[in-house]
């Protein structure tokens, strides 16, 4: 899979202030892979260029938000520069995404809701595992918690509603489904997702740079592993 800025056409976009110290480049208002190409193209640009006064940039589904120091430049000045950059981006080279494999021990104590998700969709638990571990998922953005990926690409055949009452603690590494979304919990947190498995790999590693395994634009593949593989992998990482 290679990304290009909407087939060589200049992207349509809006630039808005987010207060007095941040600026939003908005390519649209839907969740859409084509549209996300533009986000990735601008992110690729920022991977190689620092703008004057820029503190950081945050990609999301359809936007890139840039935090900047208003002492270094006023809003309209950055606005103008960004318009120029985005116009040039149409000719940006294609970039191959990074592929990150996430091993998952499905079912059992790690996936207490696997049976529910299967029943809800009139499937066998093995089918849910097979369907969940087949596609290439795109990491549209990281948010909600450190290293938590907003993934696109889950099959509607394993969609399931959130739990009626959220769990107070969801263990680190839990893989869940909520509606037609799937995700992995990098830290322990309360949550209402249906849990189908757990990964032994750490998605949030605060002592490393970068501190998370995933970043926006990555492609994720889930690989089923046995509980023994899970345990030996955990033992190794300790």
């Amino acid at each position: 899979m290679a990304f290009s800025v909407i087939k060589g056409k200049p992207a349509s976009f809006q630039i808005l202030p987010l207060g007095d110290a941040a600026i939003v480049v908005k390519f649209g208002d839907t969740i859409d892979r084509e549209l996300h190409h533009n986000v990735q193209a601008l992110e690729n640009y920022f991977a190689h260029h620092c703008l004057q006064g820029m503190i950081e940039h945050v990609p999301a589904y359809a936007t890139v938000t840039i935090y900047y120091d208003p002492l270094q430049r006023p809003f309209h000045d950055l606005d103008q520069e960004l318009r120029g950059i985005i116009a040039e981006l149409a000719a940006a080279p294609e970039a191959d995404p990074r592929i990150v494999e996430i091993p998952v021990s499905y079912g059992g104590e790690f996936g207490p809701d696997l049976e529910f998700v299967a029943r809800h969709n009139s499937l066998k638990p093995e089918d849910v595992i097979q369907i969940h571990s087949t596609p290439d998922y795109l990491v549209y953005m990281i948010g909600f918690a450190p290293g938590f990926p907003y993934l696109g690409g889950m099959s509607q055949r394993i969609a399931a509603p959130r739990r009626d009452s959220p769990r107070l603690q969801i263990p680190v590494g839990s893989v869940g489904i909520a509606g037609s979304q799937t995700g992995v919990y990098p830290i322990e947190t309360p949550g209402g997702w249906q849990l189908i498995g757990r990964t032994p790999i750490e998605l949030f590693r605060p002592r490393e740079i970068p501190p998370t395994r995933l970043r926006a634009g990555d492609v994720v593949r889930f690989r089923p592993i046995t509980i023994e593989e899970y345990n030996s992998s955990r033992a190794k990482s300790r």
Binding site: E56, V58, Y67, I142, P146, P210, R215
Partner: peptide, 10 residues
Amino acid sequence: RYGLQQYGVI
């Protein structure tokens, strides 16, 4: 903590 919001770090 700046520079890491793209990784979901607040």
